[in-house]
């Protein structure tokens, strides 16, 4: 079980080489297959996730959630997807058409790119990048541009307001997000995510870096535009923020990308702080799935507990609390490592 997927991949490459393909081309084709698998998994995953979020939020409010279509309403999201696909695609006449239309595509592409570096099991990643963590952070921050494009292209004050908010929010939270991961990088001594997982062989980083874990969690919530930091959408004040003018499948793409981001960030969190694919008994790829879903459930829990906070509070929280705390964490980690070396423990 453990090497199910890796063995499949080697078998596929071997088969292609016996067919007379050069090893380079076989690798390229394998990469393509990996991408297709990832996109399929993402899409299917979203269907489950949206159902899960609706169910979980219902349970938090003592409701039943979707329960009509199929057992436990599991087909509800599929019905929603069909509805969204068949909806009219409206492009506002005053919109900047090119920007308006490319924004959702850009958003989803950026979101899918995040999966390139996440180790989904032992030796299971699309590319084993030696700056994987850096790649992830920089790709994650690109989604700001997509939101800004959507807000600007819509030519609507709500959209623009949502976009401006999202830019301000994401730039502010990018800093504590990166800083909190720095402590982990200092301990493991690598930006390669497989190395970081390997470094958690004995002890998870959540225990060594609890402050970093907390700051990362908060900053990630803001990065994901999830409640209580969902200011850019803020249905009640901004009628959907940057997504106001979008309909049908274009809107669904944003939705898809948001959940894709959610899974990616949760997977990164599981990888960096919760030991990644490491775990006893079960195969590694199952462990990362379990951990990722655990983190996602915590995200749901937080979203359905706290009310949305005010924009200025959000900004001051980032600059006055999270940035100093994460900087302090780096200092503490550095001092700890120095102390450790001085004592000869490591």
């Amino acid at each position: 079980m453990e090497h199910l997927f890796t063995n499949l991949a080697t078998a596929l490459t071997g088969w292609m080489i016996t067919l007379g393909l050069s090893p380079v081309w076989a690798d390229v084709i394998l990469l393509l297959v990996k991408w297709i698998i990832i996109i399929t998994i993402i899409t299917l995953n979203i269907i489950i996730l949206i159902w899960l979020e609706r169910k979980v939020s219902a349970f938090f409010q003592e409701r039943l959630g979707p329960n009509r279509l199929g057992p436990f309403g599991i087909f509800q999201t599929i019905a929603d997807a069909i509805k969204l696909l068949t909806k009219e695609d409206i492009v506002p006449s005053a919109a900047d058409k090119l920007i308006f239309k490319t924004a959702p595509m850009f958003f989803i592409v950026v979101a899918v790119m995040l999966y390139t570096v996440i180790p989904m099991g032992q030796g299971m990643e699309v590319i084993n990048l030696n700056i994987g963590l850096l790649f992830f952070i920089s790709m994650g921050s690109l989604s700001t541009i997509a939101l800004l494009m959507a807000g600007w292209g819509s030519d609507n004050k709500w959209s623009l307001m949502g976009a401006v908010r999202s830019v301000a929010q994401m730039i502010s939270y990018e800093i504590p997000l990166a800083f909190s991961l720095l402590g982990v990088v200092m301990i493991s001594g690598s930006l390669n995510l497989q190395d970081i997982v390997a470094a958690q062989d004995n002890i998870w980083f959540v225990i060594l870096q609890p402050i970093a874990f907390l700051t990362y969690f908060i900053a990630a919530t803001a990065e994901l535009n999830r409640g209580p930091f969902d200011m850019p959408e803020a249905e009640q004040e901004l009628t959907g923020g940057a997504y106001t003018e979008y309909t049908g499948m274009r809107w669904a793409l944003f939705f898809l990308a948001e959940y894709t981001n959610l899974v990616a960030v949760s997977a990164l969190m599981a990888t960096v702080f919760l030991g990644g694919w490491q775990g006893p008994w079960l195969p590694s790829w199952l462990w990362i799935i379990i951990k990722t879903y655990g983190v996602i459930l915590v995200f749901f829990w937080v979203k359905w507990t706290f009310p949305r906070i005010r924009m200025d509070h959000l900004m001051s929280f980032s600059w006055k609390v999270l940035v100093p705390v994460s900087l302090g964490n780096i200092l503490l980690t550095g001092a700890g490592i120095y102390f450790c070396q001085w004592m000869g423990w490591c």
């Binding site: 349970f59 938090f60 003592e62 409701r63 039943l64 507990t305 706290f306």
Partner: peptide, 18 residues
Amino acid sequence: LIKGLGITLKHFFQKEIT
């Protein structure tokens, strides 16, 4: 915040009133 999380968790396991 922790208290709030506790409250929602408690409701999570309570019987639905729908």
